[in-house]
């Protein structure tokens, strides 16, 4: 499994390096984005969006959907981090529990995610 993923990553890296070399140079006047969409933003963004800041106009108005995804991804990444870290912590606490006071343990079982509970029960069987 590990070898396969390494090979896939190596291939992806090769494709990446190859495609970077064919990108237009930064600041190239004749590249596709600089001849079509950039002049349009510069000319019309203030009139269209009422925002004198072109960056904000593009970020929040023309490309609003993209920013929505960005926000969702950030929220989900934070949620995942919290879930992963706190799940590890709870396992640690349950091992410790037999020696320590039971107060903290009660709290952890209350907030334990359903999936973890089901897993625990399955282990017992």
């Amino acid at each position: 499994m590990r070898r396969i993923s390494t090979i896939i990553m190596a291939i992806a890296l090769g494709i990446f390096c190859f495609s970077v070399s064919s990108l237009p140079a930064i600041g190239d006047k004749n590249s596709a984005p600089n001849t079509h969409i950039t002049p349009y933003y510069i000319e019309n963004s203030a009139k269209d969006t009422g925002s004198p800041n072109i960056v904000t106009a593009v970020l929040a108005d023309y490309r609003g959907f993209d920013t929505l995804e960005e926000t969702t991804v950030m929220f989900l990444a934070g949620l995942t981090t919290v879930l992963v870290l706190s799940a590890e912590k709870k396992e640690h606490n349950t091992k410790k529990h037999h020696k320590n006071s039971g107060q903290e343990m009660e709290k952890t079982t209350e907030t334990m995610p359903e999936a973890a509970k089901v897993e625990k029960e399955a282990e017992k069987r």
Binding site: D48, T49, G50, S51, T56, A60, D61, T67
Partner: peptide
């Protein structure tokens, strides 16, 4: 219309 756009942008900025 531009003012309504500005209001919408402010709303989503608060969300972000």
């Amino acid at each position: 219309t531009a003012e309504i756009h500005a209001f919408g942008i402010l709303m989503i900025e608060i969300g972000v």
